[in-house]
Simulated scan of single mutants.
Amino acid sequence: MKTGLLEAFRIIMQTGTVAGAADALGRSQSAVSRMLDRLEEELQIKLFERRKGRVLPTPEAHALIEDVERAFISLNDLKTRAQQVRDGHESNLTIAVLPALGIQFLPRVVGRFSRRNPEIGVTSHVLTSQSVEQWVARHQVELGLAETPFRRSGFETWAFIDEPYVLAVNSEHRLAQLDLVRPNDLKGEKMIQWTSIVAARRLLDELLQHAGVTVKCTAETSMSSAMVAMVRENLGVALIDPITALLTRDPQVAIRRFQPELPCRIARMMPQKDYQREVVDAFLGCAEEERDALLALRDW
């Protein structure tokens, strides 16, 4: 299958019209329509419904677009790699990490690593834990950091972080007066929740249900840093990972221990294939140093 057909599909998904895709590709609308027809024929899937000059993606199109986007990211990575080889910079590390580590922790690790290894480039992707797992299993990256448990195989794993989640509360909230918060303390409280794809959401829901505690969900998100910002706005309390708690210190947000402890277990993952083990090990060494330095600052 020619990449041009997939590119046409990708741009149509982005623009929502054949005309928009034609402008982006520098082709006629009829040529783009023929490309779309050919792709549907090759895949034996109907990708769009045509209505009044617009194309409406089918459920099948939505199911395929993530894989197509991932393929184009890999293609772009290949082009970048080729450029590095042409320029004489043959070493490059590709990694994928979950948002809890990707927003603030990862840049610190990359900085530490790059100061020691200025000749090695780093390409990073911030993805959900499920996507990190998928990318490592498919050998699209050399290193992944994601929350367990995993659903796939085909990679090696080691523990990277095994620490309890902590509770973030507005500094003026009544719970800020406690050193330790328990489920019963949350009865009737407004709470900023994880989305259902995050393992911690299921753990907390089960814990609260077992304790007979009902909370008022005011918002859902998959980002600890967003939770901290919402706590600052007094939208509710939130259970967040310890790394984000340490990296987003805010005088308006208090961090409290929560019991029973809910474990935040993040593993490092490497594909089961030949890869730049020395480079990966060097990067992991920097990540472990940064992790240990942060965890030493815990004051809860």
Rank of each mutant, 00 (worst) to 15 (best):
A21N: 03
V32F: 07
S33Q: 13
R34A: 12
M35D: 14
S33L: 14
R38D: 15
G16Q: 06
D37P: 00
V32I: 15
L43C: 07
A21Y: 02
L36Y: 10
T17G: 11
R38C: 01
A22D: 09
L43H: 04
M35H: 06
I45Y: 12
A19Y: 14
E40P: 06
L39W: 05
G26Q: 07
L43P: 01
M13L: 15
A31E: 08
Q44Y: 07
V18E: 07
D23Y: 13
D23A: 11
A22R: 05
R34G: 01
Q44G: 06
D23M: 11
A19P: 00
V18P: 04
T17E: 11
R38T: 11
A21K: 01
A21P: 11
T17C: 14
R27T: 05
Q44R: 14
T15F: 15
A22Q: 07
D23G: 00
L39I: 05
G26R: 04
A31W: 03
S28L: 00
Q29W: 03
T15D: 13
T17Y: 08
L43V: 03
I45F: 12
T17Q: 07
M13P: 02
E42M: 00
D23L: 06
A21F: 09
E41C: 02
E41S: 13
I45R: 04
G26L: 10
R27P: 01
M13C: 11
L43W: 08
G16F: 15
I45N: 00
L36D: 10
V32W: 12
L25R: 03
L25K: 02
G26M: 12
Q14T: 10
R34I: 10
I45W: 07
S33Y: 14
T15S: 06
G20L: 12
D23N: 11
V32R: 06
G20R: 03
A24D: 14
V18I: 15
Q44W: 04
Q29P: 03
T17R: 08
M13I: 09
R27D: 09
E41G: 05
A24H: 12
Q29Y: 09
E41L: 03
R27G: 01
Q14G: 01
A24Y: 12
L25Y: 11
M35Q: 10
E41F: 07
E40C: 08
T15Y: 15
L39P: 06
A19C: 10
E41D: 10
A22P: 05
M35I: 00
A31L: 07
E42A: 12
L25V: 06
M35T: 02
S33D: 12
T17S: 15
R27Q: 12
S30P: 04
S30G: 03
A19R: 10
D37H: 08
G20M: 01
Q29H: 01
V18N: 09
